[in-house]
Structure formats: structure tokens, C-alpha cells
Design a protein around this nucleic acid. Structure first.
Lengths: 321, 321
DNA sequence: GTCTATACACTGATAGAC
DNA sequence: GTCTATCAGTGTATAGAC
């Protein structure tokens, strides 16, 4: 069956080329600029060929989403080893925001574009993760290391669920160690916490005046609100929600940022897209390096100064112009 | 100059008709389905005519955004009268989420679609609002009633800034009355708080598995995290972030929901859009009532059960199919 | 089985005739 | 002021060549 295998390999290779080209287009021009014709031009095939490998543009987008989830998970995994659950959650939160800011197009695609995209890698499994598998594991006395390895195993199946798992188990441990009231509903708490992080990233990507000061400061305030001030033992202050806006959390932020930055070298994009430029796609395909040649974006000067990580957001609008 | 005035009136009338038709299309089929041709069909003019009143589709969208901001502000104004600043902030938070869930297409358009839309009504004025005008007012000893009337005055100019103002002044009062540490940076706190609310709404509109339980519960947890448990005086508990997940906050939630629901009668939408149906737009235009004839959406059965307010989210994807 | 060429029904936007 | 005709683009479907 060598022939069949070779054909299969070729098919997979073409599929990979399609995804490569798509990824490049999305990162260069934003998801809205991703068109079947553009992909076809980039890989030098006819548009119809794409449909032999993907049923629709949406399916390509979902494949890219799966990659994005895996990428986000990679950002989380090394942080799962942090001993203190509260610190671990904070590190995860910072890494989450850093990821969204460092890879705006990826984040947009995964969490802000379409429910079918978001659900693609966050379907039933994620629901299971939120519902209490972790709770059972924690109550059974599973160690952190064991939990981490189980997360890693689950990662290949469903990165989204795995990422959730990392957070949930930290939460369970925090609760078990008295860091949270026993009455806390872990699933609800986790969702609300996630929503906070998502809100910060989403507003940063969408709202021109957010944040007015520093993104790190906002993140620090949010983490303190949810997890208490860092160096206090959390029973010495009478109002744990606030205090210490920009203290010792800084180094951890930088660590997370570093990690996120290395996961994928700077997602740059074009502020003002060219109108026509025939052959631009072919040129892109010829470029061997997958990542873009950083082209400075000055869409919102205030933004560049305020975000600690490079986070240009292209005007994503394909259609005809 | 009676002739000129009449012409001006006619021009304004057509502009209004364009916006009316656009609003209807967005609420029926989602923003992505808003096309110039569809609007033109609805008002029975040629597509080119639209460009005499709006420079582009984006400009129409921005006009719709301005309406949406005003609508959101209307939801806030009556809540500005709540005496206790903490309760006021909670009511505002609940109203915000309720608004987003009740008017998903409006919310999407305003806060999740495009930075230029979000910035349209939230430009420099909002930045000013966050920067400390409110702080000065509060320190000068301005009463709540006076502040509210000033907000109302500002509303016509910039609803977005006015809405922010309402929140910021509540925050200032809370801080002044000792509800927050003196070291709190009000602008940062407000942004982080807003991000939490936005995250809840945005995930609810985008992520199929959010929330796994009840939206109200998640909101309650988030409000407690930021503002402390409701009936405690906020210094009796050693860890104020948690406690009381679903206690007495319920009646207030219902109040907010009621208000949001009355502001605009149920934003319904179409789950699976028809493929062609020539004449559908004209039919829509003929319908005198601006609001849609509720057409049940069963996109995500879990969603309908989980959200306490009607929140169908159409598959927003125009393009050709 | 793989792929291309062609076609269809759309999109936003514009030039120019009336 | 309004419309017709048109441009350059879109996702997708299908007939038919290899």
C-alpha cells in the first residue's frame, strides 16, 4: 500500500500548506481578509481545490482555531508547576492576557469571532471540565504533578478543555487550602474569573480608549480583586478586594509576557491595507518564513504606548473596497 | 427659505428611513447581514442613493452605534438615583449585563465589532471622563442629584461618556465613604470592573458553553468579588472577595432585567437564514412595527435554558451562500 | 481521484447619464 | 437628486478535463 500512503501523505501535505497560507494571511491582514481565492493564490492552486480538503471557509477557520487553542495551552503548561495555587492562578491570568495581546488575531479568531469557532475546540469536553471532574480528582488527593501530567495527556485531545483543567485544578487546591470559602462554587468562580480576563483582552482589542493607563495595572487590580493582594496572608486586611495596585506582581507579569512572546514571534500586521497589489499573495507564499516582517502599525498611538507587549490590531475588513 | 428647509427635512427623513431599515435588518439577521443593497431594497431606492446620505456602510454602522449607546445610557439613568454607591454600582453592573443579553446585536455592534464603531461614541470624551473630572466634582462636594442632572446634560453630546460618568461618580462616592481603600485608582478600578462585565456579556454572546450554570449567578459572583457581599458591612468577613453567591441580590437583578427589557421589546433574530427569498427586504420595510416578530432560535439549546433573559444570537455571516 | 475553468449570487463602492 | 451600469472583490457549486 505504498502508493496509497504516498497519496495520503501528499494530501496531508497540501492540507498543511493550505493552513500555513491561511495562518499567514490571518496574521498579516486579519481574519476578515481571509478568502478562499487568496489562499488559493498563495498556494498556487485553484480555489475549487481547497474544497477537496476543507468543506468551507469556516472549516479552515476552525482548524486555525484548534492551533490557536494549542498555542494558548502551551503558554499555560509551564505555569501549572507553580506551587502556590493563588500565585499559579495569577500567573495563568497574566499569561492569558499576555497571550491575547501578543496574538490579537489568534485571540480574536478563537474567542471573539464566531460561536462555532469558539465551540470548535471548547465543545462538550470543556463543559465536562467545568462540571466537576477536577473536583473529584482534587478530593481524591491527587498531587499537583499528577494533575499536570493528566492535563498534558488531555491536551492533545482538547486543548481548550485542558487549559480549563489547569485553571480549575488550581482553583480546587486554593479552595481546599482555605484560600477560598468552602461555599464557593468552583465552576461559577472559574467562569467569572475567565470572563474578567477575557473582558480585559477583548476591550483592549476592540475599544480604542482601553485602557487609559497601563494594561498591566488593570490586570493587577483585577487579579487582586479575585485573589486578594499578593503578600498579605489574606486575613490581615479588612477589605481584601483592593490594596497594592502595582507591587510585587510585576516580575511575574514579565515572565508570563516573555513566555507568550517566545511562543510565536511577534504577531505583526498591516495598519492600512493596500488596495489591490496583484501578486502580493504569491509573494507571501514565496516567503519561506511563516511569520510576518514586522510592519509598524500606528492605528492608535495611545494603544502602542499603553500595552506593554506589541499588539497591533489591523483594520479587519475584507469585502470589496 | 421655505424650500430649502423642506428639502432639508426631506433629506433628514430619508436619512432616518435608511437608519430605520438598517436597524431592522441588524436586529433580524445580525450586523454581518447588513448590506447596502438590502437597505436600498428596504427603502425602495437604489444603492447609490445611500451614498448621498452616508459615506459608507461603516458610517451607517456608526450611526446605529450612537443609537445603541443612547439606548444603553437610558438603561443606566434611572439607576443613578440609588443612594448607596455600592448598591448603585451593582445595579449598574446587572443592568449592563442585562442590556447586552437582551440586545445581543446592538451590544455586538457597539462593543465587539470594530474599534472604529466602539470609538465612534466613546472617543476623547470618554477618556476625559475616566481621567478625573468626576473626581474633582466629588471632592467639591457635589450632591448625587446634581451629578445625575449633569450626567443627563452630557448624555446628548456623548452617551458613552455619560454612561461612564454615572459609573465613575458612584465609584468616587464609594471611595469617599470608605467603601474602597483610599489608595484605589478610580479610573483603573472602573476599567477593570467594566472589563469584567464586558467579559461576561461577550463570552455569553460568543462562547457556546458559557455560562454552564446561570448567568445571574456568574454576575452575582463577579459583583461580590468587586464590591463585597451585599449584607455584610464589609469588615466583618476576613476575606471579602467571596461569600453569598446567590443571596439577596436577586430582586435587584430582576429589577434591572425588567428595565432593560422594557427599553426595547425583545431583540429576536433568525437562527437559520433563508437563502434567497427575493422580496424579503421589501416585506420587512412594509412592516410598520420596527421590532421583529419573535422567531424562535434554537441554535444552542443549552443557551436558552441558561440565560434568564431572552438572548438569541443569530449566525451572523452575510457573504454569499 | 485531483484539479481547473467557469458560473452564480452576492458584496461595497463609483462614474456618469438623466 | 436619483438611477443605471459597472468594477473588483467575495464564498461556493459544478461540469468536465486529465
Amino acid at each position: 500500500m505504498g502508493i496509497a500512503e504516498r497519496k495520503n501523505r501528499q494530501k496531508q501535505a497540501l492540507r498543511e500548506r493550505i493552513l500555513d497560507a491561511s495562518r499567514r494571511i490571518v496574521m498579516r491582514e486579519g481574519f476578515a481578509a481571509l478568502s478562499m481565492r487568496k489562499i488559493a493564490d498563495a498556494i498556487e492552486y485553484s480555489p475549487a481545490t481547497l474544497y477537496l480538503h476543507f468543506a468551507s471557509r469556516d472549516e479552515i477557520a476552525q482548524a486555525l482555531c484548534a492551533e490557536g487553542y494549542a498555542q494558548l495551552l502551551e503558554t499555560f503548561v509551564p505555569l501549572a508547576g507553580i506551587a502556590d495555587p493563588a500565585e499559579r492562578l495569577k500567573a495563568l491570568g497574566r499569561a492569558y492576557v499576555a497571550f491575547g495581546v501578543a496574538h490579537p488575531e489568534t485571540y480574536r479568531l478563537i474567542f471573539m469571532e464566531d460561536p462555532s469557532y469558539t465551540g470548535a475546540a471548547l465543545g462538550g469536553a470543556a463543559k465536562g471540565a467545568l462540571k466537576g471532574e477536577a473536583a473529584l480528582a482534587a478530593e481524591a488527593g491527587i498531587t499537583e504533578a499528577e494533575a499536570a501530567s493528566r492535563d498534558a495527556a488531555a491536551a492533545e485531545d482538547d486543548p481548550g478543555a485542558a487549559a480549563l483543567h489547569i485553571m480549575i485544578s488550581a482553583l480546587e487546591q486554593l479552595k481546599a487550602s482555605g484560600g477560598l470559602p468552602a461555599s464557593t462554587d468552583v465552576a461559577v468562580w472559574a467562569e467569572a474569573f475567565w470572563a474578567t480576563l477575557h473582558g480585559i483582552v477583548a476591550l483592549n482589542l476592540t475599544c480604542p480608549v482601553f485602557p487609559t493607563t497601563s494594561l498591566d495595572t488593570v490586570v493587577a487590580v483585577a487579579l487582586d480583586a479575585w485573589l486578594g493582594a499578593p503578600q498579605a496572608t489574606r486575613d490581615s486586611t479588612q477589605h481584601a478586594t483592593q490594596h497594592a495596585t502595582q507591587h510585587a506582581t510585576q516580575h511575574a507579569t514579565q515572565h508570563a509576557a516573555q513566555h507568550a512572546a517566545q511562543a510565536r514571534s511577534a504577531a505583526a500586521s498591516v495598519g492600512t491595507r493596500k488596495k489591490k497589489s496583484p501578486g502580493a499573495s504569491a509573494e507571501a507564499a514565496a516567503q519561506p518564513d511563516g511569520e510576518p516582517a514586522a510592519q509598524p502599525s500606528r492605528r492608535q498611538p495611545a494603544r502602542a504606548a499603553t500595552a506593554s507587549l506589541a499588539a497591533p490590531a489591523p483594520k479587519r475588513k475584507a469585502a470589496g473596497t
